[in-house]
Design a binder for these strands. Structure first.
Lengths: 169, 169
DNA sequence: GTGGCACTATTCACTCTGTGTATAGTGCCA
DNA sequence: TGGCACTATACACAGAGTGAATAGTGCCAC
């Protein structure tokens, strides 16, 4: 559910129907986590089923119905719980890069190649982000900084893994 | 599909039926990314549908059939492509922590609390991992180092975000 | 004045991912 | 001999994500 909760948080600020909500979402979160329209409506009906939101008005104007949703007290509580609950401690354990290096080592593929290609990719992305940093507002800057910090962490790890490849093979 | 590909990589080393494959998987990857039996069989039938694996033998011994799977040349190619293809550059952009801080800021909740709780959680996990490091083989050490690097990156970001909260609010 | 395009608004069908439970035989041990 | 652990798979269901379908409104260019 975690992916849809930012949506519930937006509904908390002001009642809306799906389309409007999706626009608000795009303004705030699309850059970091794009969402399709289909997901928005699916999320809203799940919110309703769980009592986190309710339909206040169904406007029928020739064409599809327009359902206006409002968050419920239960929904507000859900948002609070999500915001304050720290992330699972194993979040960074499930690394795609680590799995790929591990498979390369055990299957006779070139682990150096895996590391090198990832380094190139990351360096490119870092240049891109550094460019974006210049005309970013404080909130965007925070998101960019987050991504840069983790790209940097990956690069350090790539360096270290590269140094240990002989020992690992 | 990326979650199931380590499974295909294990099938590459030696033909197996689902149960055996799941055991091999647990030995190598369960710590970083646990997988349920149900997912293994679902993945195998998808591999078959796509021509990445094929059934070589169906043993019927009173009870459920035992299907032995073997990887195909197409499957081998798929593993290679996965191993060598660098991760998407936006991997670290979709951060749960960033979303939660952003929601806290815009909804009048305490962003400092969000950051503090996450810091406590991360510090606990880091102590845990540092303990595990002592009796880890080189490959496990690589996984642990990976996670530690990213926890450290998160902590640095938490620090920086904390310093900028006034400016952000 | 109309053909096409962009916009508002939602639904549906489909795949993939993930969890939990059911089924069914074998072997062992107390 | 009752129960538990192990080998082995299937099935039903919820959630997440994609793409196409539907349908009316408004506008602009030709």
């Amino acid at each position: 559910m975690s992916a849809a909760l930012p949506l519930l948080a937006l509904l908390e600020q002001e009642p809306a129907h799906g389309y409007t909500l999706k626009q608000r979402y795009d303004d705030r979160f699309a850059r970091t986590r794009p969402l399709a329209f289909g997901q928005v409506y699916a999320a809203l009906s799940r919110f309703e089923k769980r009592g986190w939101a309710e339909v206040t008005e169904v406007e029928v104007v020739d064409g599809p119905e327009r359902r206006r949703y409002r968050i419920t007290p239960d929904g507000v509580e859900t948002v609070s719980a999500w915001v304050y609950a720290p992330q699972q401690p194993t979040e960074f354990a499930m690394s795609n890069l680590y799995a790929r290096v591990s498979v390369a080592l055990s299957s006779g593929r070139s682990a150096i190649d895996v590391l090198d290609r990832q380094r190139v990719q990351h360096l490119g992305r870092m240049r891109e982000l550094t460019g974006l940093r210049k005309d970013a507002d404080p909130t965007e800057l925070l998101a960019i900084t987050y991504e840069l910090a983790h790209l940097d962490a990956d690069l350090r790890w790539i360096e270290e893994a590269g140094n240990r490849l002989e020992e690992l093979a």
